[in-house]
């Protein structure tokens, strides 16, 4: 194999390239949290954190930590000049009410119709991590997903014809950024917008359970 998959920071950096100035953006826990590190300071993008932070900024220096200011992953952050705080019901009015230009979530699986599964692997296990994902998924103007193309455990593809895990929301994903490619949900299914250097169409298709389309 002559290609080198992106690492998690690489996926975050690839997403950051596609976020224009002026957007109001929520970043989910996991790979998406790193996206803001790759948006240059001179590009004004406002980051929302579900716990009521508008204008979330980067991590503080160790001696500047404010214990009262954290992000959705409960990591210490700073506030950009111009930022503000709201309570939880208003924070989710932002999420649900169509005020976010973009939300980026992690996921277990995405299906070719835009379904997303990211909160439970089965109903029997005690892991039930809905958090804010269901509100964000149905509420943002556009939903992008950041995830590895293949699962670490059994090597199955996360790019599915139909999701095998319980859904977070139906038909809401617009784009998927993986360690191998950038995919778009189209009326025909997954369209390939971009692949990492050295990867062939055949190699990408082999790693995708759903059929891929090139334009």
């Amino acid at each position: 194999m002559t290609f080198r998959p992106l690492d998690r920071a690489g996926i975050a950096a690839r997403i950051a390239r596609d976020i224009p100035e002026g957007w109001f953006v929520n970043l989910g826990i996991g790979i998406p949290t790193g996206v803001s590190d790759h948006v240059p300071n001179d590009r004004e993008v406002i980051f929302h954190s579900e716990n009521g932070v508008i204008g979330a900024g980067p991590a503080p220096a160790p001696d500047k930590i404010n214990p009262f200011l954290v992000n959705a992953g409960t990591q210490h952050i700073t506030l950009r000049t111009g930022g503000s705080f709201v309570h939880h019901a208003d924070s989710f009015a932002i999420a649900r009410g169509g005020h976010l230009d973009l939300c980026v979530l992690g996921a277990f699986e995405v299906a070719e119709n835009g379904d997303i599964a990211n909160w439970a692997r089965s109903l029997d296990e005690p892991v039930k991590q809905v958090g804010g994902a269901m509100d964000l998924a149905i509420g943002a103007k556009r939903l992008w997903v950041a995830m590895e193309h293949i699962t670490k455990g059994h090597g199955g593809s996360r790019i599915r014809r139909v999701c095998s895990y319980p859904l977070t929301a139906k038909g809401v994903v617009r784009r998927v950024y993986t360690d191998l490619a950038v995919l778009e949900i189209t009326p025909r299914g997954f369209g390939v917008l971009d692949m990492i250097p050295g990867m062939t169409r055949e190699e990408l298709q082999e790693r995708s359970e759903a059929e891929l389309h090139w334009t």
């Binding site: 579900e50 019901a89 999420a95 958090g131 804010g132 269901m134 509100d135 149905i138 859904l167």
Partner: peptide
């Protein structure tokens, strides 16, 4: 879901007797 939790609490305080939300509907 977190936003539904916040809104159900707000509704309780606000006297709203029920509401419909797309969150979790599917």
């Amino acid at each position: 879901p977190q936003g539904t939790l916040a809104e159900r609490l707000r509704a309780a305080g606000a006297g709203v007797q029920a509401f419909y939300t797309p969150t979790g509907a599917d």
